[in-house]
Design a protein around this nucleic acid. Structure first.
Lengths: 209, 209, 209, 209
DNA sequence: CATGAATGAGTATTCATTCAT
DNA sequence: TATGAATGAATACTCATTCAT
């Protein structure tokens, strides 16, 4: 009715879409994807049910969009953390910090992602992308441990990955009760002890060998 | 009197109940509890939709029963592994072996359990039981690390817990691609390296060796 | 297995059938026909579900049988009460007493029957029979009031019928709180006052006519 | 903004809700609450199965709503009939007329209500309300008979109640075959005959006349 | 004759999605 | 563009009835 410029419409669109996504993320994360209905999202976002379908093809598409953004943001953050780090140990510490910062900053994203990781039949293509990214990271970590001269770089990489994921899983489950910062410090200390200093660290202290 | 003896009926019941439970476990684990319908279970078990209700009060009761059995079996296995181990390091190794054996033997159980751990609004009383068991184990591990003379037994206990859970999560997600046995060996070796010998060890103290 | 004579079998049959019927009546009356399951009846009667179908074709047949017996018993009782009463007022009093005695003695029957009377689609042929019997009674009552010289025998008959059914309905709903005996006495007194003595009773107290 | 105005939506809602309620009432009354399925209501109302749940929380809520409206309407009608009547006999006549008018105007409501009165386990809170209302009426009637100088006001009140309920039950069961209007006139005449004139009358007082 | 395991049609209810306006 | 009423397929669960033994 009232004359609105294209920009205004576009701004409204952006805002509505963003609201919907953010509300949906929160609900998906806290109640689970299956237990969150479109009606609930619409109500919480203060829009009509029908409007959702102007922005997203389906509930699954909404989830898809949210996840993709999270993954990209995560990748971006990781990238940033690793920039200009050429020392393997530094890289490892960077990955550690980046991972923990990520799960801390985007708690809802990761809670949702983790929950979905254990459900088949949901969003297989997101899973594929995720798996590829994870594989890439694992490979990078593997190569770092090689550079660090670890005896069994593969197992060491898996172990490190298990630590990171284990910590994240615990944090997601326990929330603020979990001593996430202390753990971060502790893990980094351990890494330094093993691989730092004169490289005389126990595990992978290999160069002396 | 009855042309079918009590024993016959009992045998039939046993068999049907077992079939339903096993089929349900498999489907719950692979597709998720919420995404598995009674119809699907019935079809996969080659029985009628209604039969489940001869054995279980509800879908939730079916899940409940399955989980409780898994938990008890798990507790039993852990008990067994820890019998007659009074040396702290031995205990730790026992826990490691038991945990990994458990997730290996009862893959579906643990996949299901893990998935449920990340879902809200499901089977809260099982969650409660599980949390209590986990707390007990954490406390035991904490006390083990105290006995082992760890400087920061709490963080060390959390770290060890993160490793175990991280490994299990990876195994659950990757399946047979994951080098579970190698990881077990590696973790145990690490434990021995850290705390073996005079027992005064800790990570990175390696130079004494 | 053990040799049993035909008579023994027959006796068992009789007993089982009677038990089932009596248990079913009680359950139907107290919980309603639709809310009573075959399983519940079988359990309460201490027989197997399957056995029921040896005696009755279906749940509906069971109800049917129960109702028919009740109706016949009712008719018999009425007959008895009316025997050898040739004075119209006596007949009316007899019907009153018989009706009230019936509902009192066979409380469950009448509770069930009343409940079913307000449900369509149940046992239409029983309804038909019942309606015929009621019509017969109404006609008889009508003729009694004619003999008593009532001005409007039809309406008087309906009024009397309404009183009887109203009392029964109240009794069925209130149970022992209802002063059934007092009401019986009162109604009979009223009848005598109206039609008794020289026939100068109030209503239809024909001398004014 | 919205191409369908609030008023339009409201009108649609009103209409749909009214249709569903009216169709449901008819079916509940003729087939019984338990024997009427949501599917049947939807089919008869020419709407989808799910639509009912846009307006009512459950089948029970639908029944509840229907009954409450009937009860309120009934109470209102009774009130109206009793306004400005201070003479006890007039009151009694008013109650009579109101009751009969009510059952005549809202045949389906009262058929349903009566049927439910004989069913266990249905809508207990409506039953409670109804019982309270009935008790209030009974007390009022009792007090009227006291004022009228009846010798046994309690029994007389019960008798009158039985007449009213008996007539209603007959009308509900026989439908238009029942001479409801004639009965109304007749009952009122009887009341006048008994208690009219100097107001000193009571049943059986007739011989003094 | 007697059992109770098994069946499957039927029930109430939910919810992603469509569509007239 | 935005609304929310309407749809209908899907879900968990019930229960009269059948049947192998």
């Amino acid at each position: 009715m009232s004359p609105k410029s294209k920009e205004q419409f576009e701004a409204i669109r952006q805002k509505s879409e963003a609201t919907i996504k953010s509300v949906a993320l929160e609900l998906f994360a806290s109640k689970g994807y299956n237990n969150t209905s479109i009606s609930q999202i619409a109500k919480a976002a203060n829009v009509s049910k029908g409007l959702m379908y102007n922005y997203f093809d389906s509930k699954e598409d909404l989830l898809h969009t949210i996840l993709m953004e999270a993954i990209e943001e995560g990748a971006g953050a990781m990238e940033e953390f690793l920039q200009n780090r050429h020392d393997p140990l530094d890289e490892l510490i960077g990955i550690t910090k980046a991972s923990i910062a990520m799960v801390k900053t985007n708690f809802h994203y990761w809670k949702l992602m983790t929950a979905l990781a254990f459900q088949e039949n949901v969003i297989t293509d997101v899973k594929d992308i995720l798996e590829k990214k994870q594989e890439a990271i694992i490979n990078q970590i593997f190569s770092i441990f090689e550079h660090l001269g670890a005896k069994q770089p593969k197992l060491e990489a898996y172990l490190y990955g298990a630590i990171l994921d284990g910590v994240m899983v615990h944090y997601i489950n326990m929330g603020e009760d979990y001593p996430l910062d202390e753990m971060e410090t502790y893990i980094i200390e351990e890494l330094k002890r093993k691989y730092g200093g004169g490289g005389e660290g126990r595990i992978g202290r290999s160069k002396d060998e």
